[in-house]
Deep mutational scan, measured.
Amino acid sequence: MQRVNMIMAESPGLITICLLGYLLSAECTVFLDHENANKILNRPKRYNSGKLEEFVQGNLERECMEEKCSFEEAREVFENTERTTEFWKQYVDGDQCESNPCLNGGSCKDDINSYECWCPFGFEGKNCELDVTCNIKNGRCEQFCKNSADNKVVCSCTEGYRLAENQKSCEPAVPFPCGRVSVSQTSKLTRAETVFPDVDYVNSTEAETILDNITQSTQSFNDFTRVVGGEDAKPGQFPWQVVLNGKVDAFCGGSIVNEKWIVTAAHCVETGVKITVVAGEHNIEETEHTEQKRNVIRIIPHHNYNAAINKYNHDIALLELDEPLVLNSYVTPICIADKEYTNIFLKFGSGYVSGWGRVFHKGRSALVLQYLRVPLVDRATCLRSTKFTIYNNMFCAGFHEGGRDSCQGDSGGPHVTEVEGTSFLTGIISWGEECAMKGKYGIYTKVSRYVNWIKEKTKLT
């Protein structure tokens, strides 16, 4: 034993070699072989497995989906700052455009905790909710729209109204504003409101030439003092309507412009014939205590009207009353817009006519005020429907199939267009061939041609 100890002390290297040989010859039971080890760690190889990531292109799944990435790591994937920024906006807080917040056709661009709407022409605001041009839906104005110097929408209202708090709607500024039905039992019968379409306001006024200088022999019209197929109006439903009495009662109609003036057809009036105007009328054979009678003290036909040349060209006249009318729910003026808007309103496509005229061709006159909704007829169809001249200051309205029309005794009465609950004068009943005849239409004086003249002559002093 002493000898062994001496050998170990003198030859430590020998001992180490012996131990190493023993270990190498022993069977290893701690580690699995290569094949079995792979069965336990069965993990798919990654895209760049075996390579240094710093030297390969980034992978979106590896960089940002398996674990949260930084902007720089995302930049490695896209290799483009702009594309990385677009991805980053949604990656950080989701897609803010998912709810489609942009209105009126706006395009949404996502941002971090926010979004941006790219608005089409005519709109602005956070969600493109603000109209900035009158060309689109009248700028959301209830009545009139004008573009300011910086191309912003400025709404306005006709006389007797003021802008509401929203700067879009119009509200009454006087007790009985024009064009409004205020009798409670008839307010439910107000005709369907007309909503502004998209309009090209630059070209809204037709490029028409008034044929002022045409000389033409007097034409022989049949029954051209021209509501057939209409309905009984309720008291106060058309408070701007008046009836004219002269040699015979209810020979023509008219509309209240203001307390002192009536507008009617020029062919209705004769110099030297006494005319009485009755406002607030409903049943011409009954006294309903809503009527107001006034005498006409002055007749002003349009300066281009000449019955000797043509009885229905420039067929418009103004009547001055001896005493002002007292405005109330049964006696209310009709609204008159400017030339541009009167023309736009007419193009809405349908209007209402009213009167006490004959209820059928050569038949009896109506006792109760009649009204009828009539569609506008395109000019080409209008011209083809008659052998008589249709001037540019006239328009056609009615039904091709016949059966409904204005008729004798309705002449001078109103053709009105309702705009968001307020009625505007767009025409004056003038003439036609018979009444409600198939293929024939009622012919009306186009008020847009005469609004400046009306307003100039009827100013209240």
Results as ranks from 00 to 15, higher is better:
39 K>C: 04
305 Y>I: 02
189 L>G: 09
394 M>I: 08
346 L>W: 08
130 L>I: 13
401 E>R: 13
118 W>N: 14
99 S>D: 10
242 V>F: 00
157 C>I: 00
378 D>Y: 03
109 K>G: 05
116 E>F: 12
458 T>W: 00
345 F>K: 01
350 S>E: 15
414 P>Y: 07
73 E>M: 00
365 S>A: 14
5 N>R: 10
403 G>L: 10
46 R>Q: 01
383 L>G: 15
80 N>T: 12
123 F>V: 07
96 Q>Y: 12
138 N>P: 06
308 A>E: 14
114 S>P: 05
318 L>Q: 00
290 T>F: 08
250 A>F: 08
422 T>E: 01
18 C>Q: 05
402 G>V: 14
120 P>V: 13
382 C>M: 03
163 L>V: 11
358 R>G: 11
32 L>Y: 14
169 S>I: 05
42 N>I: 13
86 E>T: 10
446 K>R: 12
100 N>T: 14
437 M>C: 07
163 L>F: 01
302 H>K: 02
116 E>C: 07
142 E>L: 06
15 I>T: 08
81 T>Y: 11
417 T>F: 02
391 Y>G: 12
282 H>F: 09
352 Y>H: 10
75 R>V: 07
203 N>M: 08
10 E>D: 12
263 V>C: 03
245 N>D: 06
359 V>D: 12
207 A>K: 12
439 G>R: 09
95 D>M: 08
21 G>D: 04
55 F>L: 15
285 E>F: 11
155 C>P: 01
301 P>L: 12
196 F>K: 15
424 F>V: 00
257 V>M: 03
420 E>R: 12
62 R>Q: 06
26 A>G: 13
302 H>I: 02
100 N>V: 08
265 A>L: 02
414 P>S: 08
246 G>V: 05
357 G>T: 15
428 I>E: 00
91 Y>M: 06
190 T>C: 06
198 D>Q: 13
419 V>I: 13
267 H>I: 02
12 P>C: 15
418 E>D: 15
230 G>S: 10
125 G>M: 02
7 I>H: 15
204 S>P: 10
83 R>A: 14
456 E>S: 10
332 T>K: 08
112 I>G: 13
361 H>V: 12
321 L>K: 00
267 H>D: 03
33 D>H: 10
345 F>Y: 13
388 F>L: 15
346 L>C: 02
20 L>H: 02
406 S>I: 11
120 P>W: 04
120 P>G: 09
282 H>C: 06
211 L>R: 06
16 T>F: 12
427 G>I: 00
67 E>V: 00
359 V>W: 10
369 L>C: 04
190 T>Q: 13
264 T>G: 02
426 T>A: 00
55 F>W: 08
73 E>R: 01
357 G>Y: 14
425 L>I: 04
192 A>S: 12
433 E>R: 07
17 I>A: 09
438 K>C: 07
